[in-house]
Amino acid sequence: MNSFITNNEGIVLKYIVGTDDFSIVGEVSSKIKKVLKQLNIDNKLIRRVAIATYEAEVNVAIHSLGGYIEVEIIKNEIKIKIRDNGPGIKDTNLAMEKGYSTASTKARELGFGAGMGLPNMKRCSDEFKIESKFGEYTELNMKFVV
């Protein structure tokens, strides 16, 4: 973990996601899942959060120049923010379409790149926002009601 803050409001976890080593993709999501389990959050909700963070982690690793995942756990809500350092998405509406993908052969060999990641994150979360500036960054914000 790269940082862990806890106060009366809740817990904030922040993890850096790299891009060089595909074999460790999923470690961050695995850590987040463990924390949620320790907090005795409902298993079905944990599963939805785990799927969404893992899809996001895979995306950061295969598409971006690196980034981070921030998890904020407050009383009735889990907020997840994923932000990368670019290269950004030209057309986010197109990227949200099922089946649209710009993934590399390498990503496809790992079992990804089917163009299902972003729609799946939207399906799993209670609130989903995507924002991107081409050439700069992509930021996803998801909310889950506890």
Partner: peptide, 17 residues
């Protein structure tokens, strides 16, 4: 059931329990 044998298969299974 899968023919893929990389880490991501285990990670995927982990996320879905």
């Amino acid at each position: 059931l899968t023919g893929l044998v990389n880490n991501q298969v285990i990670r995927t299974a982990e996320m879905l329990d």
